[in-house]
Measured scan of single mutants.
Amino acid sequence: MAAAAAAGAGPEMVRGQVFDVGPRYTNLSYIGEGAYGMVCSAYDNVNKVRVAIKKISPFEHQTYCQRTLREIKILLRFRHENIIGINDIIRAPTIEQMKDVYIVQDLMETDLYKLLKTQHLSNDHICYFLYQILRGLKYIHSANVLHRDLKPSNLLLNTTCDLKICDFGLARVADPDHDHTGFLTEYVATRWYRAPEIMLNSKGYTKSIDIWSVGCILAEMLSNRPIFPGKHYLDQLNHILGILGSPSQEDLNCIINLKARNYLLSLPHKNKVPWNRLFPNADSKALDLLDKMLTFNPHKRIEVEQALAHPYLEQYYDPSDEPIAEAPFKFDMELDDLPKEKLKELIFEETARFQPGYRS
Rank of each mutant, 00 (worst) to 15 (best):
N45C: 08
E109G: 11
A282N: 15
T118L: 09
K114G: 03
K342P: 14
L107N: 08
G215R: 00
P58N: 15
D167M: 07
L130T: 13
P23V: 12
I86W: 05
V49C: 12
R67P: 12
I217N: 00
Q66S: 05
D88C: 14
P356F: 15
K164N: 00
Y102T: 05
G357P: 14
D100N: 02
Y30K: 08
K270S: 12
K342G: 12
L28T: 10
D318I: 11
A174G: 08
P226F: 07
C65Q: 14
Q17L: 02
R24K: 13
Q97S: 12
E220T: 03
I217H: 01
I133Q: 11
D149V: 00
P152A: 05
L308M: 01
K342W: 14
H141D: 10
I31D: 10
L264G: 04
V145A: 12
G215I: 03
Y43M: 11
A260L: 11
T181A: 05
Q355H: 04
Y205A: 05
L121Q: 01
L75S: 08
M38V: 06
A309F: 14
K99T: 04
E250T: 15
K54R: 03
M333R: 06
Y64G: 07
Y316W: 15
F183H: 10
I198H: 06
I209K: 03
L338G: 14
D251K: 04
M38H: 06
E334M: 14
G357V: 00
I74D: 09
R359F: 13
Q236H: 02
F59Y: 01
Y102H: 06
D124V: 02
A260R: 11
Q236F: 03
N238L: 04
E305K: 02
K330N: 04
K272T: 12
I126Q: 08
E71K: 04
L116R: 11
T351A: 02
G215F: 03
R359V: 08
D20C: 13
P11E: 03
E186I: 13
I211M: 07
P247K: 04
E305C: 15
S41I: 14
P328C: 11
F78V: 03
K270L: 11
E345T: 14
V21I: 03
L264F: 11
G169Y: 09
D111A: 00
P268F: 12
K340R: 00
G136V: 00
L28E: 12
N224I: 00
E96K: 02
M38N: 08
L258P: 04
D251P: 06
A309I: 15
K259P: 05
L150P: 02
I84A: 13
A219V: 03
I83L: 08
K344P: 07
V39L: 01
N154W: 05
A325P: 14
K344T: 10
G85I: 14
E322C: 15
D332Q: 10
L69C: 10
H269F: 14
L264A: 12
D106Q: 14
C127T: 13
L156G: 01
I31C: 15
L121C: 08
R277M: 11
M221Y: 04
I255E: 09
S360Y: 01
D20T: 09
L241Y: 07
A325Q: 12
E220C: 03
Q105V: 13
K151A: 03
T110D: 07
T181Q: 07
L115I: 14
N27Q: 14
Y263N: 00
G215Y: 02
L130C: 09
E303N: 15
K203Q: 02
S320P: 11
T185Y: 04
I255H: 10
F331I: 00
K292S: 11
G357Q: 08
S41L: 08
E334G: 10
Y263D: 07
M221H: 03
L346C: 10
L287E: 06
E96G: 14
L107V: 11
P11D: 08
L289N: 05
P58E: 13
L222Y: 07
H232F: 13
L150I: 12
M293K: 00
Y113C: 05
A286N: 15
L258A: 10
C40H: 15
P93L: 07
S29M: 12
D149S: 09
F331P: 15
Y316I: 15
D44C: 11
A3T: 04
P328K: 10
A327R: 12
N27D: 07
A286C: 15
H299M: 08
Y263C: 03
M221K: 01
I324F: 01
R70W: 08
W212L: 00
N257Y: 00
K114V: 05
E349W: 15
V214Q: 01
L170H: 03
P356S: 02
A286S: 02
S360L: 01
V21W: 06
T160F: 07
L137A: 05
L184V: 04
S223F: 09
E197Y: 02
D251I: 10
N201W: 07
G215A: 01
V51H: 13
R261T: 05
Q306P: 13
L170M: 01
E109N: 13
K285A: 11
A219N: 03
F168V: 08
V18N: 14
W192G: 01
N82A: 10
I140L: 02
D337E: 00
I133W: 05
K164M: 07
K285N: 00
P339A: 08
L163E: 08
Y25T: 09
L237M: 06
S202D: 04
G85A: 09
R172Q: 01
D100M: 14
R24M: 09
N257E: 05
E81L: 11
A309V: 13
W275K: 05
R67K: 01
Q62M: 10
T118P: 01
A171F: 05
P339G: 09
L156N: 05
G85Y: 14
K117H: 11
A219M: 01
R91M: 12
I89Q: 13
V51R: 15
A4E: 15
T295S: 00
S248M: 10
G22E: 02
G204H: 10
P23M: 14
F168I: 00
G169P: 07
I256N: 02
M98D: 07
